[in-house]
Simulated scan of single mutants.
Amino acid sequence: GGGLPSCNYLVKQLKNFRDGKRKSDTMNEMAKDLKDDQIEALADYFSSKPALTHRVRDKGFAAVGEYLFKKGNRYSGIPACKSCHGEFGQGTDELPRLAGQHKRYVADQLQAFGERARTNDNAIMHTIASKLTEMEIEALALYVSGIKEETKEEQ
């Protein structure tokens, strides 16, 4: 991979789709014939793309998600999302970028982790997601969908 945040993560996910370790009718079918070098090229390409930012209409509800993202919920034992996924949700080489991800996708993945329906990368995320209420899941998903990717001019 190119060493960009989330590049190795994307390589792993595409290989998991190809090998059936992560289930998705669409993605399993699309990835089934990919060779490792094609997967690495796709991961390099997609990890180099800037995050899209979605418009957040309900700022108050998104603020609940922002609080959870930045501080967690000490009452239910949920750590801050930023402690693993980065201050601005930019991801790491091993963890996905959350900034700008579509809110429905994020909510669906959190629910899948909580229910152990997601078949890969479940150990840590199940422990966290299973403690999230439906309201917290929806607020987090809304917040991360609107995170703007940091640029040098903004820093």
Rank of each mutant, 00 (worst) to 15 (best):
G2Y: 01
P5E: 02
Y9N: 12
V11K: 13
K12Q: 07
F17A: 00
R18L: 01
D19H: 08
D19Q: 14
G20I: 06
K23S: 14
K23A: 15
D25E: 11
D25S: 15
M27H: 10
E29Q: 11
E29S: 12
M30E: 04
K32R: 14
K32L: 04
L34K: 13
K35G: 03
D37M: 07
E40F: 11
A41D: 14
A41M: 11
Y45H: 05
Y45D: 06
S48I: 02
K49E: 11
P50K: 07
L52R: 13
T53G: 05
R55Q: 14
V56C: 09
D58R: 01
G60W: 01
F61D: 00
A63G: 07
E66T: 08
E66Y: 07
Y67S: 14
K71F: 05
G72R: 05
G72S: 00
G72P: 00
N73Q: 10
N73D: 15
Y75Q: 12
S76L: 08
S76C: 00
S76P: 00
S76N: 12
G77C: 08
I78S: 02
P79T: 03
C81S: 11
C84Y: 03
G86M: 01
G86S: 00
E87C: 11
Q90M: 08
Q90W: 00
G91E: 06
E94L: 14
E94V: 14
L95A: 14
P96H: 10
P96S: 02
R97Q: 09
L98V: 02
L98D: 03
G100Q: 05
Q101Y: 10
Q101M: 09
R104L: 04
A107N: 02
D108N: 15
Q111K: 08
A112I: 01
F113P: 05
G114H: 03
G114L: 04
G114A: 04
E115T: 12
A117I: 10
A117R: 15
R118V: 07
N120R: 12
A123C: 10
H126I: 07
T127A: 15
I128K: 11
I128P: 15
I128A: 12
A129W: 06
K131M: 09
K131E: 02
T133I: 01
T133M: 03
E134G: 04
M135H: 04
E138Y: 03
L140W: 02
L142I: 10
Y143V: 04
V144P: 00
V144F: 02
G146S: 10
I147A: 05
K148W: 00
E150A: 15
K152D: 14
E153K: 12
E153N: 07
E153G: 00
E154Y: 01
Q155A: 13
